[in-house]
Design a protein around this nucleic acid. Sequence first.
DNA 1: CTGTTAGCGCCTTCAC
DNA 2: GTGAAGGCGCTAACAG
Lengths: 351, 351
Amino acid sequence: MAGNTSGRKSTIYDIAKATGSSTSTVSMVLNGTWRRYRIKEETANRVLESARKLGYHVNMKARGLRLSRSGLAGMVLPHYRNRFFAGLAQTFEDQARSRGLCPIVVGTQRDPAVEASVTQTLLSQRVELLFIAGVRNPAPLNALCAAAGVPSINVDLPGDGAPSVVSDNRGGARAITDVLIDKLIARRESPDELILLGGIPGEYATAMRIAGFRDAFEARGIALKADAVDSCGYNAASARNALALRHEKLGRLPSGLLMNSITAFEGFVQFTSTLSPEAWRSAVVGCFDWDPFAAHLSFDVTMLRQDVQTIISEAFALADHYDPADRSVVLVPTGFGKMFEEAEQTKEFDR
Amino acid sequence: MAGNTSGRKSTIYDIAKATGSSTSTVSMVLNGTWRRYRIKEETANRVLESARKLGYHVNMKARGLRLSRSGLAGMVLPHYRNRFFAGLAQTFEDQARSRGLCPIVVGTQRDPAVEASVTQTLLSQRVELLFIAGVRNPAPLNALCAAAGVPSINVDLPGDGAPSVVSDNRGGARAITDVLIDKLIARRESPDELILLGGIPGEYATAMRIAGFRDAFEARGIALKADAVDSCGYNAASARNALALRHEKLGRLPSGLLMNSITAFEGFVQFTSTLSPEAWRSAVVGCFDWDPFAAHLSFDVTMLRQDVQTIISEAFALADHYDPADRSVVLVPTGFGKMFEEAEQTKEFDR
DNA sequence: CTGTTAGCGCCTTCAC
DNA sequence: GTGAAGGCGCTAACAG
């Protein structure tokens, strides 16, 4: 097997000794800048060959120390449990790699203490930029980065300590509400029975989505019922309970439902699975976010999908022209169903 | 706001100058080892205060260079799109952090070229250990790590270049097949109509699962039909097509199905959603892997769940007592349904 | 109790 | 064309 047997990693000194050249020659060759220094091709080849044989890898710690560039790009996000965050992570990795950076993404479980300590760690590793995704109050993290002179960008949830790029929740809500209202009308059902379920009062995404929901009704001059919006929380259990209450009061499922998150939608599925198929197949359902299983349920379900590609591109663009004083918020449009599916391609071996 | 205004990160020299002490004093204080060196508490406080004011963070690059310890733990995995890999990533991060390491996990999309280059990058960053998950042929990656003197552990898919920890696919298949056969018998249906759908002939996990599937039948003395096992591939489309063929030939759905992956199960859901509920509600279904939506579908579905906690713990244990010559394979038992759910807890704000 | 110093591995400038 | 030398920020002896 190739490689040194000593267990110690090989350095440019080892290569220099092995090839009888000097460390600077080795360095130049390994960096591809040797042509500029008119180093003999033969020498270069000898060095390259030796490096391969010794199983040499640049020590980014040393290079980074010297060049004060770590080659690391960081991203913190709550978790990988839904397609949106999984897609963000994936896209971030791809784009970071294509820029020659090593992506390093960390899940924080939405724990502010973890968020802070992870940020510190990433800063210690000297990441060259940091994307902060899905953090409710990113300001302290932005401050940390600012103090270290590292560009930080807020993603998905805006903050006032750095520029942000977020999905156009309001526009998306407006669009999906329009679709659902049209469907209800086509079925000769009353649009004002449509309810928006899930989310947290006062929370940014919820507020935006409620606004978009209202926009759609206002544009048609339809009055919203008092209980049309129920911000019962994001998680499955709360949505399930809220739905059970509605079901009991109404004696049946509402004819139209817009679920405020994939987890709320989970609660919806959990509840309806206790009902008979006839009882729920007729409901018109919409959901913020997308999931492959949910998309194929036997409902008439419309799913809003976020454009992770554009979100990440915009974030990198912001980082490129980083201005510490910039507080702009970039809005990225959403789409329906299978849009933005490129990233979902599966290989033959994927399971 | 705290922090230097120069944009340059502050160093221990800055602190030393600011506090009128020497770099070693600062270093000791910052490392918490100052008590041992009997440094005056007052001095220590002065240093700490100054560090805070200057927005100082250790430069792990420099410390790593000096100590030849990077504080980085690496993991490569195919993607985050299913709960198993997402759970592996999450658990890895948690355990790495609790060991004082900075987790750095990278998705490779199952592309061998990406796998290799990512490994090189991680090695360059001087990760202290590398977990290689879901890689079909980890041998080259193991070789790379070995050459660099970095412990590597294969996870999920074993390899002969390093120790491995994998789920007990055969035992799990045996157990879930038993459950399904019992259910069929309880419904007075013939167990030999149970089929195993999905996977790739010759691939490790598929082979193990087929063996377990056979074990269950053999133990009961039931003969397996010739077409009981259909390794039609892992992805949703192939499973959907294979199922459509069966459906056409049989004139109905098979009474029992064991899907070889969550993606194959996706194909199953896609196909059955085109059928009437009566046509599929009676089927007895099983699946390797778990998903929150799939778990609440209106099927009688039994899902096998992998124990990511134990898998990662075992992998760390292997890394702790790393022996380059070790080629052992640790088998981790699987469980059903909601087992191992601790990691799935969602917070109020989770969406 | 605290300061001085010698590298960790690499890159770059400047002589030769 | 190539070698020597300095220094990136930090730590651990070793002197005081």
